[in-house]
Amino acid sequence: MHRYQSYGLLFLSDIELPELSPAGPDALPEDGSVRIHRRAIELPAGVRDLPTWTAFGPEGVRFWWQTVGAFEVCDGGRTILVDPAPDVSDDLIAFPLLGPVLSECLRRCGYFVLHASAVDLDGQGIVLMADKGTGKSSSSAALLRAGARLLADDLVAIDPATGLIWPGFGQVKLAQENLSHQLPGQDWQARPQVHEQIDKVRVMVPELLARAPIPAARLCLLSRGRGEIPELSPLALQDRISAVLDFSYAVRFGKDGMTGDLAARHFQGAVMLARSVPLRRLELPCGIDRLDTLAPALRRDLDTQSEDRSE
């Protein structure tokens, strides 16, 4: 089996996942591992005729994408089963596997998972939350060019009890039209597209991945601005809780993913993060060419006393 290390977990996988960092033979204890197996998955009648389908249950969650196949997360997040559609490559399987499927694995392993990007800026974790097309990945790429290290792009996993952000894998997804501006050198490797409906390019930056968990210092809610420099402003506690819940990955699954004990732990985790980590509204400068002003603005904000931290 392939052995990988990501999000503080050891992954033992039947499927090759070059996005993840290889794990040495003694990297982590195998009794705390997540196992990824190719197995047949039973689905209800008619489901395989649908474009997509998701079902949550007390024992786990099952996913179906007609263009990729079926997936199941079970054993408290410690097992992921993959039942690929005919002639589907491992490269295409990785898109849902390292996205919504992995998000449920991490959530069931105790993490609070945000649909966001995160970087280690001078030893402090910066989380960037934004709607699609706002500039989340472009902003994290700008911070990497300014000396930050990548924690995660798309799936940010935080331990709500400690506030630590665990490093994911060394990849960012960038819009095709931004590649010429965003790729600073040969160390940033764009991977080929594998499906016509995927509108972003996967860019591998394994050497820029953080090597250890980093304490979350700022949660940033991004919006597009009209000025030449970024503007940061604090939010009230209730707005911070709402923002954390809105950008948690689990809300993408609707109310079915928010029931029982899992939903209660999810809300508790959101409140813990909103209370313990300052959240800023971050208005981005107008134009991708001005994103080099983002790192100085965040460093100035980090140097100030956080007036919005709540007990």
Rank of each mutant, 00 (worst) to 15 (best):
E196V: 03
W188T: 12
G77S: 06
L183A: 07
S276Q: 13
A274Y: 14
G32F: 03
D159S: 07
L237V: 12
A141W: 10
V172C: 02
L282A: 13
C105I: 02
L12H: 03
V113G: 05
H195R: 11
P285A: 14
A295Q: 10
P22L: 00
L174F: 06
G135A: 12
F112H: 14
G76V: 01
A141Q: 12
L81R: 13
V34D: 07
S138C: 05
Q189I: 08
A263Q: 14
L12V: 08
V127F: 02
W64G: 04
D289G: 14
V73R: 10
L183R: 08
W53E: 01
L97H: 06
I15W: 11
A146S: 11
S310N: 14
S6Q: 03
V277F: 13
F112G: 04
G99F: 03
L262Y: 02
V172F: 03
K255Q: 15
S276L: 10
L232H: 10
Y4C: 11
M258C: 09
D26T: 06
V82Y: 06
D90A: 02
S6P: 00
G147T: 05
S233Y: 08
I165H: 07
D154V: 01
L97P: 07
D31C: 01
A146E: 09
P160Q: 02
L208P: 06
E42H: 15
V88Q: 01
A94Y: 02
E196A: 11
G99P: 01
R108A: 00
E16F: 03
C109F: 00
L279W: 12
A212P: 05
A45D: 02
L208K: 15
R35Q: 11
V47C: 14
L50W: 09
D292P: 06
L222F: 12
F95E: 01
P296T: 15
A217V: 08
Q189E: 10
F267E: 00
G135F: 05
T79R: 10
L262S: 08
D289Y: 13
I93D: 02
E307N: 13
L10S: 07
W64D: 05
M1Q: 10
C109D: 00
T67L: 05
A243K: 15
L273W: 13
G257V: 10
